[in-house]
Write a protein that binds this DNA or RNA. Structure first.
Lengths: 174, 174
DNA sequence: TCCGTTATTTGCCGTATGACAAATATATAG
DNA sequence: CTATATATTTGTCATACGGCAAATAACGGA
């Protein structure tokens, strides 16, 4: 069991062990992302990103949604037109500031998101159930260490830490 | 260290440990997928999928590319028009069957794909370098077990096993 | 109240994608 | 050689996105 210290050349010429990790990680990413394909016929990628963003914030106004999607408000407004027409999102007027919207998921929109998550959970569980218990333990430990390291890097850069890894990952695969 | 046997209820009510794995996996997926965002301005999602599919097959004809993208040939043809205009893909005539095309990446297209992969490698290495060595070892073991389990499930379903996890994962995040 | 600011919508335009049908070129069976 | 099948392109249409500018509505300060 090699125990070398952190090398100074980050990102270049990683130890052989690292590239193996990179290769093996693909299976996890593939299983994680496969659930999205089943919904490809229902909503587009951008629409799903919007749904996930709204769900994550519970409620959000148009400007923040646009910012989260990296778009201008007018584009987001049109996107919401389509999502509203599809019965997935509801626009309601904000009480405190009547200029703003309060975007929220309809029951239909919420169940779409939940189905996606359940699908992913089932896909992952299917693979986990095939793993030897020791493998699951190792995976858990390894992923916790990875998430911890990613968090510390994230904090160091920290611009707007309002997003956690789960929501970032969810939207990336939208 | 729990060592329970594989439960019969696959996909439902997973052991607590499993849902922890699911939560922690998000960080890995997020880091893996982040590299794609840097290329969002250069090529669209579909275009990147096409580039990755061509690169994976080294050379491919239009019909197979269309099938891999889940589109009809005419859509794929238009897609190739744009990729060719962008200097990323080359159309050449097939020798054996002059009806077919031979699609391949131009040097420019190949370097775009390679940049993406290097970016991902660097992002992963950055996090891996922050992990305690024991965590890296655990991650490696766990991912290997996961990939093995995923492979065995894949083989059992096996329709067209021409894709490995790496390429599936790559295209999912395109 | 009047004015500048902010949030959202709408009009307009352009590109990307996606499908279907028809045309073209080539291969292959008979 | 002819008829049919296959691979690709092109014409045409529809939809989704994306941005800019202008319009609308509401907030907030002077």
């Amino acid at each position: 069991m090699k125990d070398e210290p952190v090398p100074p050349f980050i990102g270049h010429l990683p130890p052989t062990e690292w590239s193996v990790i990179e290769r093996e990680a693909a299976a996890l990413v593939a299983v994680w992302g496969r659930s999205r394909q089943a919904f490809a016929t229902k909503v587009s990628s951008v629409q799903l990103q919007a749904l996930l963003t709204i769900e994550q914030h519970e409620t959000i106004n148009l400007g923040r949604l646009a910012a989260a999607l990296g778009a201008v408000p007018s584009s987001a407004s049109r996107l919401c037109d389509r999502l509203e027409a599809a019965g997935l999102v509801r626009r309601s007027h904000c009480e405190e500031d009547k200029r703003e919207l309060t975007l929220s998921l309809t029951p239909s929109g919420r169940s779409l998101v939940e189905e996606l998550q359940q699908r992913r959970r089932a896909d992952l569980a299917r693979v986990l159930s095939e793993m030897p218990p020791a493998g699951r333990i190792a995976l858990l430990r390894g992923l916790q260490a990875f998430a911890g390291a990613a968090d510390s890097i994230m904090e160091r850069q920290a611009e707007e830490p309002e997003d956690d890894w789960t929501s970032i990952a969810a939207r990336l695969l939208a």
